[in-house]
Computed example of a mutant assay.
Amino acid sequence: MSKRAGRSLKASPAGINQVKNSLRNFGSKLALADELEISRATVQKFFVGKPIGRENFHKICQRLNLSWQAIADLPAEDESFQEFLCDTSFDLTAVVNEWRQKARLHIESRCGMVRVLDMSQPIDLNDIYTNVNILEKITGRRRLGIAELLQNCGVQDFERFGLSGVTEKRVPGLEAVKRYSKLMVLGKPGAGKTTFLKYLAMQCIEGNFQANRVPLFITLKEFAEAPGQPELLTYLSLWDGHLARPRNGADRMSTPQDVSMLKILHKGRALLLLDGLDEVREEDTKRVLRQIQDFSDQFHTNQYVITCRIAAKEYTFERFTEVEVADFDEEQIAIFAQNWFRSQENPSPTLPELAGRE
């Protein structure tokens, strides 16, 4: 099975009739363009069956409550592929369980151990992890007037001038992920963004969180610098569940394993954890951003969590909700310190040591 369609799509004659009918319930083409912040020319091309960008095609179809696959004029190969994806005889639950089993060793080896501060060796994530809280309003984007800045600026607050008594509502990290299907987690260096992402992966693979999905942990810097600059879909297809890195392979989706991964993505049964957007090299940034945007648009029913350092750059993903990792409160500091000293007294065995015991 060859690589999927290019970067543009057009509506089929039958699809045009469907979108025109749906437009009657919505209003006008002008209103549609304004709401989606798409040029009027692009919307006009869509309604007359001319090619437009895949992302805009998906956005228009979604706003009109239509399946883009049903509207698009797909080549015969893609039509047969879509028929396969919609085949109800395909045992999705069995495939998801199979992939979860394949992914377990990779997730445990990649996410089950962490090294923080001055540790000489990694320790078990569960031994040190402290539940994080999320701020739904980014502190660096707060806009305060002079009166508000001066309201609480006593001597005790001097070091945090203008930020004293930060009382933004805190939400438990897991609750934020449950609430938003597409999440951009921002945070200061060392705030625990990667650790939180690893915790999500471990909770998922252990069946404690979104047990009906396959966790896919991707370090974006590694993806960006992968040989041949593969598409994100291809990069995922090259994962071997028994290894901690992608295997080598041709840039194609052809094996039963590849097809089953596509089925999982198409049905929204993946938890995609994309770590370290700010660590991607400058020359790779634009390509990686486009890849994430296109992928999350094409497979929009999956769960996405991206981490990025706050204020590193201005990244905008239209369908992603941005939140920030909150600083630890006193209780969290005490829990972390307790876990830290306990781990130093009883360090966890390393993976090679565990393997040697078997």
Rank of each mutant, 00 (worst) to 15 (best):
K267E: 15
D78Q: 15
I264L: 07
K169S: 11
R213I: 09
L117D: 06
Q44M: 12
A250K: 08
A14E: 12
E225A: 08
L289E: 15
L183T: 09
L243Q: 13
F161D: 00
R245P: 02
H242D: 10
L265R: 08
L64I: 15
I107W: 01
L149C: 02
E324T: 14
L105E: 10
V96N: 00
L149E: 03
E98I: 01
S89L: 12
V288G: 08
P75T: 14
T321Y: 05
K188E: 09
T93N: 10
G356Q: 07
S28T: 15
F161V: 06
L66A: 11
M261K: 12
F317E: 04
V114P: 06
E358F: 10
R357D: 07
T316W: 11
E206M: 04
E136Q: 10
A94R: 13
E322I: 08
D251V: 06
S22F: 07
S2I: 14
L9S: 03
K286F: 04
G53M: 04
L23S: 08
L150M: 05
V325Q: 00
G356D: 05
L74D: 00
L105F: 06
E175D: 01
A11Q: 03
T195F: 06
E283P: 00
A33G: 07
E168S: 13
D284K: 03
L265Q: 04
A41L: 13
L289Y: 05
I306N: 01
A211R: 11
A244V: 12
T195Q: 03
D124M: 08
E35A: 10
N21W: 03
K221T: 14
T301L: 09
A270C: 12
E148T: 14
R104A: 13
S2N: 11
H242R: 11
S8C: 04
E322D: 10
R247Y: 06
I292R: 02
Q151V: 00
I52H: 01
I218G: 01
A355T: 13
W99L: 04
K50V: 08
P215D: 05
V288A: 05
C308I: 05
V171F: 01
E37L: 09
A355I: 13
C153P: 00
Q101R: 10
Y180E: 07
L64Y: 09
L32G: 09
V132H: 02
H300E: 07
R24M: 11
E331Y: 07
V323W: 01
P256V: 13
A94M: 11
Q62K: 15
L150S: 03
L30F: 02
A33Y: 06
L30K: 06
Q293K: 09
L277E: 02
E283R: 00
G241K: 05
S39M: 06
D78H: 08
T93S: 12
